[in-house]
C-alpha cells in the first residue's frame, strides 16, 4: 500500500512571532522555519506503517516556496521514500491546497492519506476535511490511534468528552492529533540518504488548479497584553471583586 503524507513549512513552534506594524500579517523575516508539528506526526505514522510492513511506500508532498524542499528532505530523512514539491510563492487558502492535494491523490492513488489536523500558523483545520469532500474518500480526523485491519483503517479520534473509534474503507484520509505518536529524531546517515531520494518539482499550473485566493486577510493583531493581577486581602474581598468587578459569579 502506498501512503501519501502532506507536510507544511511553518514558523518553528519555538519562535515568538511578531505582528508586522502595518497589521498585514506576521513578520517572517529571519525567522526559523520548520515542519508543522502535526505534519511531523503524520510523517512518523506513515513511516511506522511502512516499518511494520503494512505500507510499502511513503510519498511526501509539500506545497509552497522553493524553501519547503527542506521540509520534504527532513520528511525523507525520517523515512519517507520520495517527495513531490508543488512550487508557488503565493499564499494559499486551505481550499487551494486541498484541490492540489486531490490532484496528487488522483495521480498517485494512495491507499491512505495522512495529514496534520491543522498547521500552527493559520490553525484553520480544514484541509483534510476539504480533501475528503473533493476526493469522496472517508475521513478520520484528530486521530490518536490508527490501525489497519483487513482492508480497513480503524481510527481512534479525540472528540469532546472522550474517544470515538471509526472503521473506514480504504482508501481513506486521516488527520493527526498530538498524541498519535512521538516523532523520532532523524539520524545523520538518514539525512545523507535523503539527499539521494527522488524529489519531483511541479507547479500548480501542471495540475490545472486555480489557486487564486478566495479569502482576504483584513487585519492581523497580537493578542491583548495581559493585565497585572492584584493581591486581595481576604476571601470576602475576593468574592466581592469576582461579583462586582469581574462579574463572573
Amino acid at each position: 500500500m502506498k501512503i501519501l503524507v502532506s507536510v507544511k513549512r511553518v514558523v518553528d513552534f519555538n519562535v515568538k512571532v511578531r505582528v508586522k506594524p502595518d497589521g498585514t500579517g506576521v513578520d517572517l523575516g529571519n525567522v526559523k522555519m520548520a515542519m508543522n508539528p502535526f505534519c511531523e506526526i503524520a510523517v512518523e505514522e506513515g513511516v511506522r506503517l511502512k516499518e511494520q510492513g503494512i505500507a510499502d511506500e511513503v510519498v511526501v508532498v509539500s506545497i509552497g516556496p522553493k524553501a519547503c524542499q527542506e521540509q520534504i528532505r527532513t520528511a525523507m530523512a525520517l523515512g519517507a521514500d520520495r517527495g513531490i514539491q508543488i512550487e508557488t510563492d503565493q499564499e494559499l487558502d486551505s481550499l487551494a491546497v486541498a484541490k492540489l492535494l486531490a490532484k496528487v491523490v488522483e495521480e498517485e492513488q494512495p491507499g491512505l492519506v495522512i495529514l496534520g489536523k491543522q498547521s500552527i500558523d493559520s490553525d484553520n483545520n480544514q484541509t483534510g476535511q476539504m480533501l475528503g469532500a473533493l476526493t469522496g474518500m472517508p475521513q478520520g480526523t484528530f486521530a490518536s490511534e490508527v490501525n489497519l485491519v483487513e482492508g480497513k483503517v480503524e481510527v481512534t479520534r479525540e472528540v469532546d468528552g472522550g474517544l470515538q473509534t471509526l472503521s473506514l474503507n480504504l482508501p481513506a484520509i486521516v488527520t493527526t492529533d498530538l498524541r498519535l505518536n512521538e516523532p523520532r529524531y532523524a539520524s545523520l546517515p538518514n539525512f545523507m540518504k535523503a539527499k539521494r531520494k527522488p524529489l519531483d518539482t511541479k507547479s500548480p499550473a501542471d495540475f490545472g488548479v486555480d489557486i487564486s485566493p478566495r479569502l482576504k486577510t483584513l487585519k492581523v493583531e497580537p493578542p491583548a497584553e495581559r493585565q497585572a493581577g492584584i493581591i486581595v486581602g481576604s476571601v470576602d474581598e475576593l468574592v466581592e471583586k469576582l461579583k462586582n468587578e469581574a462579574k463572573v459569579i
Binding site: R73, Y185, M192, K195
Partner: peptide, 18 residues
C-alpha cells in the same frame, strides 16, 4: 558534508538537546 545536510543534522541535534 554539503552545508544543507550539515545544517539539518545540527538543527536536529539542537532540537534533541532542547
Amino acid at each position: 558534508l554539503d552545508q544543507e545536510t550539515l545544517k539539518q543534522f545540527v538543527d536536529t541535534v539542537r532540537r534533541y538537546v532542547r
